[in-house]
Amino acid sequence: MPADPIPLRAALAEEIGSASPTLEPGWRDAVAAVPRELFLGSIVFRMTGAGWEPVHRAQVGEDEWLRMVYSDRTWVTQVDEIDAADATGPVSGSPTSSATLPSLVLRTAQVAGLRPGQKVLEVGTGTGYSTAVLCQRLGADNIVSIEYDPGLAASAATHLSNAGYTPTLAVGDGLQGCKEYADYDAIVATCSVRSIPPSWFWQLNDGGSITTTISGWMLASGMIRLELDDEGTAHGRFTDDTITYMLARPHERPPAPVFLRQDGTTRSTHLDPGLVELWAGRFVAQLAAPSAELMNSGSGIILRDTATGSQAWTEGDGRTWTVHQHGPLRLWDQVEEALQAWQDAGAPNLTEFGMTATPYEQTIWIGSPAGPSWRLPI
């Protein structure tokens, strides 16, 4: 007899609730109610040694498929804009859409402090699963969801209809918000952004909130809920989560040429470059060099600035380190100064970081707005 999805759904909800004691029961109940199997189609990607390999429902069998569906994990459904259903074999590249792990969907909703009766804009419909969870908890009449990819939007609309949910759906660039249905009590992004898009501020009700993950081209991120004050400035502090969403497509890194090391100038560095491998350390490095991407060289790190071609790379023996810098930007100088400020502040985790933001200027700081701070690219 095929596996029954209902007890699997209930078990997943119980697993998430047990791991998150502060989770409101209503969100756990939403996971127990939403049929996730209706949002995954019949093919997903799984990472293997050959790349992103399509996994077919018919090949693994119904029991295994449902166990996959009701595991608390992300299932990638698109890689570099290639849908899993269109893949004839393993593909390489970066995921561009997925069915996010349910615990992250609920964690984001919990951080957002969403309540029944609030009008919510979800940026990034994806498969529609997170949209369904919001509908189940808050009511479909309160949910507007916008998706950048027309194909994904059409699939999500079908999934939601089949599951019995009727939110307001739109197709377009979610970084522009969704003006035709504004204003919103809360905006929740299921994608990461390099900075808060100005349109999101302008489409919020007084006292509204924005919940998103701030990320960048070093792929370190911090989840934050920002609340709008009477003067139109948003304030908030980051959570301690070390999980993230994919970057919004317009905020993604531009294609880069093959990396070739350039010696440039050389000096010793008194800070261990390995600090950049720590989550908060990498977040700080990203703030200091927002247009740089990070690579690992095996014996050190490599920074490459996508705007100017500047680069920095380090080498060392575990006790001393040397940095080579080339180009108009001294990338390691920028990163080293920021890391030193972070260490002088006690090397705190992201809960000690906060953000002050307007449509025109956005700053992340440590401790308080008077502490060490960095401006985001807008």
Rank of each mutant, 00 (worst) to 15 (best):
T96W: 03
T96G: 07
T96E: 04
S97M: 05
S98H: 08
S98P: 01
A99N: 15
A99P: 13
T100C: 01
L101N: 04
P102E: 05
S103M: 07
S103Q: 12
V105C: 13
V105K: 03
L106M: 04
L106V: 05
T108C: 05
T108A: 06
T108N: 09
A109D: 02
A109G: 12
Q110R: 13
A112C: 04
A112F: 02
G113I: 13
G113D: 09
L114A: 07
L114S: 07
L114I: 14
L114P: 07
R115P: 00
R115L: 15
R115G: 00
P116D: 00
P116W: 03
P116T: 10
P116G: 01
P116F: 08
G117A: 04
G117N: 01
Q118R: 13
Q118S: 05
Q118D: 06
V120M: 09
V120P: 11
V120K: 02
V120G: 04
V120H: 00
L121R: 05
E122N: 14
V123G: 14
V123S: 12
G124D: 03
G124V: 09
G124L: 07
T125D: 01
T125R: 00
T125K: 02
G126V: 03
G126M: 04
G126Y: 01
T127W: 00
T127G: 07
Y129Q: 11
T131D: 13
T131Q: 12
T131W: 14
A132Y: 08
A132E: 05
V133Y: 05
V133L: 14
V133G: 01
V133T: 05
L134K: 02
C135S: 13
R137P: 00
R137F: 11
R137C: 02
R137L: 03
R137N: 08
L138R: 00
A140Q: 14
A140Y: 01
A140R: 06
N142W: 01
V144I: 13
V144R: 00
V144Y: 00
S145Q: 09
I146L: 13
I146V: 15
I146S: 09
E147I: 11
E147S: 02
E147K: 00
Y148T: 06
Y148F: 15
Y148D: 03
D149V: 12
D149T: 10
P150Q: 12
P150C: 14
P150I: 14
G151D: 15
G151K: 15
A153C: 05
A154N: 13
A154S: 15
S155F: 13
A156P: 10
A156T: 07
A157R: 13
A157N: 08
A157V: 06
T158Y: 05
H159R: 11
H159N: 15
L160T: 11
L160P: 11
L160K: 05
S161A: 15
S161Q: 15
N162F: 06
A163R: 05
G164E: 03
Y165A: 03
